[in-house]
Each structure stands twice: as C-alpha cells, then as structure tokens.
Write a protein that binds this DNA or RNA. Structure first.
Lengths: 137, 137
DNA sequence: TCCATTAGTTAGCCCTGCTAACGAATTATA
DNA sequence: TATAATTCGTTAGCAGGGCTAACTAATGGA
C-alpha cells in the first residue's frame, strides 16, 4: 500500500511535468497514445486498439476519426472480414509522433540529467515492470 | 533517452488504471484533485486553487461550481477583498476524498500484489528517484 | 435459412481543458 | 477626488476524451 501510494504520487507529478510539450503537437494525449501503439506495435483493428488503450470501442472510434481527419492514420478494409477495419499510421503520423516524443524526452532530460547509471537503470526496470504488470492485470 | 519515453507511457497507463475506482465517487479527477488541495493545504481562493492545479481560472471556476453543487465545498466572501472568494472543504467533501483516495491506492496495490520483493523494491526506488528529482528540477 | 454473435458507428450525456469577453472591485494616478 | 488601470472571478463557446444505449452490417452456427 505504501509503495502504491508513492508510485501514484510520482506518476502524477511526472506526467504534469511531461504533459506540457505534448500540447505543441496539436494533438491530445489520447491520440498521441493511440498513435504510439500504431507506430510501435504496427497496424491494428479498432477493437485491438481500444483494448490496448483500455477504452471502449466508441471512444477509440472517435480517436481514430480524429487521427484520420488530421492525416495521421489511414483506414483500410479487412479483406477477410468486412466488419473489421485496419488502422495504420501514415508517414505524417509517424513524423508527428517522433517529434512529440523527442520534445517529451528533452523536457524530461532536463530533470533526469544528473542521475547516475544505476538510478537510470532503476527507472528503466520500473517502466518495464509497470507495463508488463498492467498488461497482465 | 529511451527511458523517458517508456517512463511516460508507463505513468500514463498506471494512472489510467488507478483512475478507474475513482469513478465510484461520482466525481471526476479534476474535482478530486482540487478537493485534495483543500483538504491538505486548507481553504484557498479560486486563483490560488487554479495556480496549485496549474489550470486557468475559468476551468477552476467550473470545477468549484461542481464541488459546491455536490455539497463537497463551500464558498465564502472575503471580507477584505470582495472580489475574492474563499473556498473550503465540507465534512462531506473530506469524507469523500479520503474514501476515494483509499480506493485508488488499494486498486493500485492490488495490481502490484503478484510482484516479487525484488520488483517491488525497484518500484519503491523508482518512486523515490522520481520524486526527489522532480523536486529539485 | 434464420438467428445469435461480433465489429464498428452514431447519438447523446458529462467532465475538463482552453480563449475571449465581460462585470465588479480594488488600486494607482492624474 | 475622479478617473484609469489592474485584478478577480464568471460566462459563453469551442474541442477533446470518457461513458452507455442503440443501431447497422457482416459473420457463422444451428
């Protein structure tokens, strides 16, 4: 319980710090997050994207509509199952995500510089543990 | 540099998970966060609350209106400066906040229960590193 | 064939962020 | 002192992001 409380607090403060430069991309956090799934995990159906982001299909439907409207993702029909749609990132989308990511890294770099290799390793491991734990849960 | 991005992603997903039980309170995250400021830092004016939460005054104005409508906060006129309003938490508000906080931490703790001692130690250290680093930056 | 299931969309609700524009109160200044 | 500038908060209106309910279309099984 104690670790959970401190982790929660740390996550909140970390995100507040990191959220600022993301607004420069002109895209909200949900779109950037969905875009990063497409970039790092490849094309996905809407249901898969919704599950990965832990939101309901109608929510993801609107997020994807926004990405498409902004030219960051494209929609293709699935040949085998006409109910499914295949969502993939465009060159513009990949560029925008990488730029947003670079800005975010730079913002955090200012606060993370000064940490030694051991401390960075701890953060790296923590990120891995959190992601895998949440993926299982 | 890779670490910052992964940490950001982990924090997003962690908070998204922890936010789930908060919906049981019937209040959104912004209201709960503002309420916690009132509980732990005492009564504040609207401008002070907005600054503490890093949102603009119109946003905080609506959040406070919601808290008042739900009977979680009360508004008093400032005797010295009639432009200012003094916002304080009610007994109901304090009760609701503590319950929501307990639920949130518990939900997070539940997802961490499958982890071994070494993994928990990594998360503990990571929380410490993040908090102290952000406090300095 | 007919019907249940599945995938995605649409409509409509609420919350939360913003800017612009406003009214009221205070403070500074001519 | 009268007036102008500033400050505090609110209102209006926009967009994003979450949800449920209800719908269409396609699939697949009985």
């Amino acid at each position: 319980m104690e670790i959970a409380g401190r982790l929660h607090s740390a996550a909140i403060h970390l995100l507040r710090r990191a959220a600022k430069p993301d607004t420069l991309s002109g895209q909200g956090p949900a779109r950037l997050s969905a875009l990063s799934v497409l970039v790092f995990a490849g094309p996905r159906t809407l249901g898969e994207l919704a599950a990965a982001e832990r939101v309901k299909p109608p929510t993801m439907s609107r997020i994807v509509a926004g990405l498409k409207r902004s030219g960051l993702a494209r929609i293709q029909r699935d040949g085998k199952d006409a109910r499914r749609i295949r969502i993939s990132v465009t060159a513009k989308g990949e560029r925008l995500l990488q730029e947003a990511r670079r800005r975010r890294i730079r913002a955090l770099a200012d606060t993370l510089t000064g940490l030694n290799a051991a401390a960075l390793d701890v953060l790296d491991q923590a990120a891995t543990i959190i992601e895998s734990t949440l993926r299982r849960g």
